[in-house]
């Protein structure tokens, strides 16, 4: 379906919410996962980026901070792997006209805090903050906000079950649009 099957709800991070006390190696592994994901985005390694997601994983950018699910409400992004693949194939198409001009992004991810960690399954919910500069044909735009990742642990490292992206300027007027994930 182009209409995405919604994962369980996930609210925007609450300020000062309790942080799970987790072993340092878990904290470190989660951080490295987030850094790698951002690196793949900036490197336009789209397939590797999509592969960070579980088979039923979803990338979600709510239209409003109060939303807890993309189910039945407008979203800026609400994409499963099929939709993400359409987006990737579009960007890679030789006649994706708006891809022809030079453009790039740089993400910095920080303030990584683990909200919950299930030692049995290895599943993690973590939050972080990002700043992203987007450059396109002599113009720079700045987007910033928070990520919440719901991560599943597999034999091959973490996979994203749901990534929630809240931009502080998400409800603002967009000068041009977002072609890739943030």
């Amino acid at each position: 379906m182009l209409t995405v099957t919604a994962p369980a709800p996930l609210a925007a991070p609450k300020p000062g919410a309790a942080r799970a006390s987790v072993p340092l190696d878990v904290q470190r592994e989660v951080e490295q996962f987030l850094y790698r994901q951002a690196d793949l985005l900036d490197g336009k390694a789209w397939q590797d980026y999509i592969d960070c997601f579980a088979p039923d994983g979803v990338y979600w950018m709510p239209a409003h901070p109060h939303q807890t699910s993309g189910d039945g409400v407008p979203s800026i992004f609400f994409e499963d792997r099929n939709l993400m693949t359409i987006r990737m194939k579009r960007m890679l198409h030789p006649r994706a006209w708006s891809q022809k001009t030079q453009w790039g992004t740089s993400h910095v991810v920080g303030n990584v805090a683990i909200e919950s960690h299930d030692p049995k399954s290895g599943a993690v919910v973590c939050r972080s903050r990002f700043h992203m500069l987007d450059f396109r044909r002599d113009q720079s735009r700045h987007f910033a906000g928070s990520y919440v990742h719901r991560l599943a642990k597999t034999g091959d490292g973490y996979r994203i079950a749901l990534q929630r992206v809240d931009m502080v300027n998400g409800e603002g007027m967009y000068e041009y649009v977002l072609q890739a994930w943030v």
């Binding site: 379906m1 182009l2 209409t3 995405v4 950018m61 239209a63 039945g72 409400v73 407008p74 979203s75 800026i76 992004f77 609400f78 939709l83 359409i86 987006r87 579009r90 994706a96 006209w97 708006s98 967009y174 649009v177 977002l178 072609q179």
Partner: peptide, 17 residues
């Protein structure tokens, strides 16, 4: 709504071009 998200949201894959 799916159409609204895909075509008319700020992440539009259509209006971008």
């Amino acid at each position: 709504l799916g159409y609204f998200n895909l075509v008319n949201s700020p992440s539009t894959m259509v209006n971008a071009d």
